[in-house]
Design a protein around this nucleic acid. Structure first.
Lengths: 153, 153
DNA sequence: TATTGTTATACTCTATAACTATA
DNA sequence: TATAGTTATAGAGTATAACAATA
């Protein structure tokens, strides 16, 4: 039995994730880098906005921002229009680190696409979009399930 | 700027992972299901073997197996040839649960591939293999890096 | 009344280090 | 001496619930 497309996608997913989890500074973890990455793309943000982008609870964002602030990666400042909220922003050092990460990300994207034979690239990209679209449909309709709820050992 | 192939792969990775993390019985977590999945594919295994397959330390395997054993998903039995080791095996209930998960997995693989236009499928699969191969090379040569070690804020 | 963020608490995953039993 | 697994301990991520300040 040979590997299905799904198996290969899962293998890719595994490699990408392992790769991203590596090579962080000692005081950075995957979750913290994810938070920095979100700030890099969103700009200064409330913790509410970060909570939605990271898909974790506001309480967890507080903990992440506490750690990032203590290590000098972000600052908290009062929101100019809403005195309940704070604005979290990257420090200059963290911003340049994220800029470098963005360049590495772009370079990786290029190198991966270059691995695909030129005559296959269009079909490959169409296929990728099709699979992504289908998966989004399935997730939205909740019809992707490993059905573990019904049965117990 | 439109999404690169890498961005789409990461989006796929995200959806696949979110999907797998959902819909577990209350006493199952993603890590525990991963352990059950490994046992489903390897058959009865030592904790050492599980440690390598799951890429976590032996100590963490002990903790996972403790929880799975307490909840009735696996059993520990003495290894017939090595009295230091134990064999961890799925209980019948867990085995049938994993069989169902395997069917769902196969069905998902089929549905995803069906989303790709028939005339694109060969090129899509070749492209996928090429990207996967390239990523494996890059990871093996450690030349994929977001370079976070050198700089600090 | 609803929202933003925090304090308090708890559980899970993971890791390192030291230890026992066996190979 | 090396390996399989455990006890002990610690750090990080996440969650829920109750609360404060503000909208």
């Amino acid at each position: 039995m040979e590997a299905t497309v799904l198996d290969r996608l899962l293998a890719l997913s595994d490699l990408l994730q392992r790769d991203m989890g590596d090579s962080f500074a000692a005081d950075l973890t995957e979750s913290r880098v994810h938070a920095l990455w979100v700030l890099h793309h969103l700009g200064p943000s409330t913790q509410q906005a970060m909570s939605q982008a990271l898909r974790v609870t506001p309480r967890s964002v507080s903990a992440l921002v506490d750690a990032l602030e203590a290590a000098g990666y972000v600052t908290r400042s009062p929101h100019p229009e809403d005195r309940r909220a704070v604005l979290v922003a990257l420090t200059p050092g963290a911003a340049s680190m994220m800029a470098r990460m963005q360049r590495d990300h772009t370079s990786l994207a290029t190198r991966l696409l270059e691995a695909v034979a030129a005559e296959d690239r269009d079909a490959f990209e169409r296929g990728l979009d099709a699979v992504l679209g289908r998966l989004r449909e399935l997730v939205a309709s909740e019809s992707v399930s490993y059905g573990l709820e019904e049965e117990r050992p």
